[in-house]
Design a protein around this nucleic acid. Structure first.
Length: 476
DNA sequence: TTTTGAGTTGTTCGA
DNA sequence: GTCGAACAACTCAAA
């Protein structure tokens, strides 16, 4: 009898275009598909609430798909290394297959596990599959990792030779199934209160849904992507990010599928995939990116401390309608439109001078696409302390951004219903509306909708002065 | 070797 | 109303 092999699913919850799974199937041993809810996972960066909801749904989908192939998914919970070794012990498995996860804590964990397996004579097979290029493989002429996006992306795309797609296995040869936890017992989904209503309305996790989303986007969205993606009410985004995070779809699948699309839309869209790559490569090169500014000058930045302002930002009660609509979209749907992420993040960091890590933490808990590399890389970018960062003087004006990208206020009306009847002229600055316009729209400032918690012009000046303190020149 | 120009997403001010 | 300049410091690649 052939010893079974364990297939350890982690951040690769799919069956198609799956190098590790295809290799495991090709090796011929009966398989034990496994997922471990790693209670040691990520140190301070344990799964956020929205991620836990997504993971539950995604595991349920994967579980159904695997059952159909004849090899049910085994669920275990605990510290990953000990759970895995326990299962090896129980089943007499002679090999473990997985796809690499590139977060620093996961790389360290997997290295320990690999050693422990080898010591027991068990083969450990790690595969790529989550990125277009392995971190560390893209370097500049001096052999160093890039710190600027454009040359990084040029180097990666020039080098990239997309492998042909790997079909999903039609059938899996299963080993006798070991005991499994029940998914429901993991309590990944909120019960009291059940705040996931908006998530359920907005998302269908799982590989099949990921493929449908991609097909829909290619049929309907990518042509106009470069034109529409900046308008939050237009829904021009691909919304593939949470699927990518959990590996329900691979970046290579997206790359290949997009290659038939018209030039402009394709380029703009694939660049976004490029930023995902860039952030992952950055995190691998700078393991403390989630916790410490890449630019050391920011260690002495005079961040403010203001619990009330932070709470207002989180709840979407800053008095700036576009910021508030963005934050409420996040809270309700687990998602925020890309442009709004910049505006809302800029508001926290520049208007309120609150530490970017506070925003990083909140997004981590509330985004269904929460991803350590993307989240930390982008927060640092907005704050100006990251790689290829936004210039210090780029301080989004929520009123101007609203006029440009939500001219009729359609997006604000959707998520800030108390302003729904306000004239478009004032929808992004209700404080400037005449008494009569407010009354007719049923708005009472300070009661039905807050007054601005900071004045834009004053906040802007304060931010510029704060940024000047960490540079050579004294403020004027 | 040194120099030069460009680099995701912006705003304000003054002419 | 429109338009260009100014607003760091640094990285990278090409000249």
């Amino acid at each position: 009898m052939i010893a079974p092999a364990i297939f350890w699913f982690r951040r690769d919850l799919r069956l198609a275009d799956h190098p590790a799974l295809s290799a495991a199937v090709a090796a011929g041993a009966p398989l034990i598909p496994l997922f471990i809810l790693d209670t040691g996972e990520g140190g301070d960066w344990r799964l956020g609430g929205a991620s836990r909801w997504w993971l539950h749904e995604s595991l349920a989908a994967l579980s159904r798909d695997l059952k159909r192939l004849g090899a049910p998914l085994t669920l275990r919970r605990g510290e990953a290394a000990s759970e895995l070794l326990r299962l090896v012990e129980e089943t007499g498995a002679s090999a473990v297959y997985w796809s690499r996860v590139y977060e620093p804590w996961a790389m360290a964990r997997d290295a320990r596990i690999e050693t422990a397996l080898r010591e027991r004579g068990v083969a450990a097979h790690g595969f790529a599959g989550a990125l277009l290029a392995e971190p560390g493989s893209i370097r500049n002429a001096e052999g160093r990792p890039f710190r600027v996006f454009t040359p990084f992306w040029r180097a990666l795309t020039e080098r990239l030779q997309p492998a042909p797609p790997l079909p999903a296995p039609k059938r899996l040869r299963a080993a006798p199934a070991p005991a499994s936890d029940r998914l429901e017992d993991w309590r990944l989904q909120p019960k009291a209160p059940d705040w996931a209503t908006g998530l359920r309305e907005s998302w269908r996790p799982g590989e099949a849904a990921a493929q449908r989303r991609l097909d829909d986007f290619l049929a309907d969205g990518i042509d106009a992507y470069d034109r529409l993606r900046d308008f939050p009410a237009e829904d021009g985004a691909s919304r593939l990010s949470p699927y990518l995070h959990w590996g329900e779809i691979s970046p290579l699948q997206i790359w290949r599928a997009a290659s038939a699309a018209p030039e402009e839309g394709r380029r703009a869209f694939l660049r976004e995939l490029g930023w995902r790559e860039f952030c992952h490569h950055l995190l691998a090169a700078h393991p403390d990116m989630p916790d410490a500014p890449l630019d050391p000058a920011f260690a002495r930045f005079p961040w403010a401390s203001d619990e009330r302002a932070l709470a207002a930002w989180k709840k979407g009660e800053t008095g700036y309608p576009l910021v508030d609509a963005a934050m409420r979209q996040l809270w309700r749907t687990g998602f925020m439109h890309n442009r709004l992420r910049m505006i809302a993040a800029s508001f926290l960091v520049k208007h309120l001078l609150l530490p970017w890590r506070e925003g990083e933490r909140w997004f981590w808990d509330t985004l269904v696409d929460a991803d350590l590399a993307n989240n930390s890389g982008n927060w640092q970018w907005v704050a100006g302390c990251g790689a290829d960062a936004a210039p210090y003087f780029r301080i989004f004006n929520p009123v101007l951004q609203g006029a440009k990208f939500d001219a009729e206020g359609a997006f604000v009306r959707r998520f800030v219903p108390e302003l729904a009847r306000l004239d478009a002229k004032y929808i992004h600055k209700p404080w400037a509306a005449p008494e009569r316009a407010l009354r007719e729209a049923g708005v009472t400032l300070g009661e039905t909708y807050p007054r601005p918690i900071v004045d834009h012009a004053a906040a802007r000046q304060r931010a510029l002065a704060a940024f000047a303190t960490i540079r050579g020149r004294p403020p004027l």
